[in-house]
Amino acid sequence: MEIVHLPDFMTLGQFLKYEGIIDTGGHAKYFLADYEVLLNGEREHRRGKKLNHLDVVTIEDVGTYQIQYEQDA
């Protein structure tokens, strides 16, 4: 599991772009439809879903990430 330190709160779609998994925010909708993305063990389709401190995002064929916000680290 990779720990990702983020500077500020972000959505799932923003996270995918921030990590370089997708090229633009517009690709998030299609990526989430095509790949299994789990948020804390549950399938997530919403690109606008806000990520919370210590959330775990698992992306099929990519990896698992634990979210940590800098102000909480």
Rank of each mutant, 00 (worst) to 15 (best):
Y18M: 10
Y18W: 14
E19H: 09
E19Q: 15
E19Y: 13
G20Y: 15
G20D: 14
G20P: 15
I21R: 14
I22Y: 13
I22A: 12
I22T: 09
I22E: 09
I22S: 11
D23Q: 15
D23I: 14
D23G: 15
D23A: 15
T24S: 13
T24R: 12
T24M: 07
G26V: 03
G26N: 03
G26S: 00
G26K: 00
G26W: 03
G26E: 02
G26A: 01
H27M: 15
H27G: 13
A28C: 06
A28N: 00
K29N: 07
K29T: 09
K29C: 02
K29M: 00
Y30W: 06
F31L: 04
F31E: 03
F31I: 05
F31A: 04
L32V: 05
L32D: 02
L32C: 05
L32R: 03
L32Y: 06
A33L: 11
A33W: 06
D34Q: 11
D34S: 08
D34G: 06
D34C: 05
D34P: 01
Y35M: 05
Y35W: 05
Y35R: 06
Y35K: 06
E36P: 01
E36F: 06
E36L: 14
V37C: 04
V37K: 01
V37T: 06
V37D: 02
L38S: 01
L38Q: 05
L38V: 03
L39Q: 00
L39R: 03
L39P: 01
N40D: 10
G41S: 05
G41E: 08
E42C: 02
E42D: 06
E42F: 10
R43V: 15
R43Q: 10
R43N: 08
E44N: 00
E44T: 02
H45M: 09
H45E: 13
H45V: 08
R46W: 07
R46K: 09
R46F: 10
R46L: 12
R47M: 12
R47S: 11
R47G: 13
G48W: 02
G48D: 12
K49G: 00
K49N: 00
K50I: 09
K50Y: 04
K50R: 10
K50S: 11
K50W: 13
L51N: 03
L51I: 12
L51P: 04
L51E: 02
L51S: 02
N52E: 10
N52R: 08
N52I: 03
H53I: 07
H53G: 05
H53N: 15
H53L: 09
H53Y: 13
H53T: 04
L54R: 13
V56W: 09
V56H: 10
V57L: 14
V57Y: 09
V57R: 11
V57K: 08
V57A: 10
V57P: 08
V57S: 10
V57Q: 07
T58R: 09
T58N: 06
I59G: 10
I59S: 12
I59C: 12
